[in-house]
Design a protein around this nucleic acid. Sequence first.
RNA 1: GGCCCCAUCGUCUAGAGGCCUAGGACACUACCCUCUCAAGGUAGAGACACGGGUUCGAAUCCCGUUGGGGCUGCCA
Length: 473
Amino acid sequence: MKSTLRVRFAPSPTGYFHVGGARTALYNWLIARKAGGSFILRIEDTDDARNAEEWVDGIVSALTWLGISWDEGPYRQSERSDLYAQAIARLIDEGKAYWCDCTRDEIDKRASERGGPPGYDGYCRERNNPRASGSALRFKIPRPGQTVVHDKIRGDVVFDHENLDDFIIVKSNGSPLFVLANVVDDMDMKISYILRAEEHLPTTPKAILLFQALGAEELPVFAHVPVLVNAKRQKLSKRRDRVAVEDYRELGYLASAMVNYLVLLGWSPGDDREFMRIEEMIELFDIDQVNHSPAFFDEKKMLHFNGVYIRELPVDDFVNHCLPFLESNEWWSGSVKQLEVFSKIAPLVQERVSLLTEVSSMVDFLFQPEIEISAELVDSVLRKDPKSSRIIGDISNIYLNLSEFKAEQLHDATRSYCDLVEMPLRKVQAPIRVALTGSKVGPPLFESIELLGKKATLQRLALASELIGIHNP
RNA sequence: GGCCCCAUCGUCUAGAGGCCUAGGACACUACCCUCUCAAGGUAGAGACACGGGUUCGAAUCCCGUUGGGGCUGCCA
């Protein structure tokens, strides 16, 4: 009888949740969804010296944000010690583990004395030590022997037991170590498919030996996906690389864009397509197509993806996504009037940003009671060219007498003025834009002016004239 | 040091012995479009790490070299 596929994502809450973890979670989730199996979230918090509750929250909220939903959990290893105790007792009873009271120093000293490679030498293996306060439990690696890891991505990887130390499975304080807790949980949860980062490959033979020692009838399928690396091609690390999922969210990345970018790091559907909906990813994802080599996490490319995803959003959705970012500005009240104005400018902003955090600075001039024009801009745009002063004066008059203050009329009137003074529109719009928005770049000018309104527009033009006058008598 | 993994443009990748003069995407350059900035369009530059085999034929298979990475914890 074929059992249904069960996968797990088992992060340890020892730091912020980084993109490598997110990618591993995503791959697990995809194979679970594709097979109609279960995705289990398990928090590996056996090392209480290092984990913290806030990190658990971070994992849970990041996965939720990304849309990676779990069918069971989150389980916590810290709540499952009875299970580990049973397994430990069994291993001791059956003579498959032994207590060792060697200190690190002693181990190192013996290693250097015999001139061999560092590592544990099996000193306590046959000594039948009783459990003492400072002793740890080691697993007795069957010798001689070898263990083959049948990896879905890498094929068969052979490990000779000669190169495997009798590793510790229980700390002297009684808590189980990661490999043991992992195997016990995987057995108890009937995990049938273990997909994790490649860094775990060297510990897999140990896990397999443990599975066998604990009487597992069937081994799960293993698949070790390549790690994600930084620009120096080192494994992404929480300490040295700032790549928290949460940070990207705060920067204004869309979860959909991030997921799409992440799925492509180590996998491609086999053709030239890059943009896929979740349903397509589920359908197309295939572990056999996963790459063997590490992938560099390239923010530039993800930024591009984000721009594409932002532009594809229906305008209403775009507005909603912007709101949390707008709310962090003191000029934003969220009033009906402000929402109306923002909704009107939104489509023009949408196609100009790659990050939601870029939105505020692009629209702030519409909401701030008065704008600030940097000295540098006053200098370079308003004062440097003597024509600027005249343009602003003339345009003020033209706008003042406009019957309708709409983008089209503003555009036409400005264009006529350009013809009159024989200047290109791109020259004429510059000082106007700076006077009205305080910036050289932004959404299309005439739509902006319409939304700004006649009163504010004329005020700001007058102010700009004054500025020029003061500095340039 | 030992064990293990990996190797196509700067980056992510396509490539399952002939469809390869090696395709796509990001980034880069130029031009076009254009009220700024974006977006878009067109073009360009840019890679099979090296050496041996196997084969009529190798980016693809094998071996070696080199290079990179991971593990080697009473971390996960």
